[in-house]
Amino acid sequence: MTINDLVGEYAIEGSNQEQSDKIAYKGKLSLSLDENNRIIAQWVINKDQVQNGNGFFKDGILVIHFNYRGEDDHIYKGIAVYKCINKDILDGFWSEKHGNPLYLGNERCLRMTSHEILN
Rank of each mutant, 00 (worst) to 15 (best):
M1W: 01
T2H: 00
T2F: 00
N4Y: 12
L6W: 00
V7F: 05
E9V: 10
A11C: 06
G14D: 06
S15T: 06
S15G: 07
N16I: 14
A24I: 07
G27H: 08
G27T: 12
G27V: 10
K28P: 06
S30W: 00
S32W: 09
S32K: 14
S32E: 15
D34W: 09
N36Q: 14
N37S: 13
I40F: 00
I40V: 14
A41Q: 01
Q42W: 01
W43M: 01
K47N: 12
Q51C: 08
G53A: 05
G53D: 07
N54A: 11
F56M: 03
K58Q: 11
G60R: 04
G60P: 07
I61C: 00
V63F: 02
H65P: 05
H65L: 05
F66K: 05
R69Q: 12
G70N: 13
E71F: 03
D72F: 05
D73F: 10
D73C: 06
H74M: 11
H74K: 14
I75A: 08
K77W: 05
G78P: 07
G78W: 00
Y82W: 13
K83T: 15
K83D: 15
K83Y: 15
I85C: 02
K87C: 05
K87T: 13
L90V: 08
D91L: 10
D91I: 07
G92W: 01
K97M: 08
H98K: 13
Y103G: 03
L104M: 09
R111Y: 04
M112W: 06
H115M: 04
L118C: 00
N119A: 06
N119P: 14
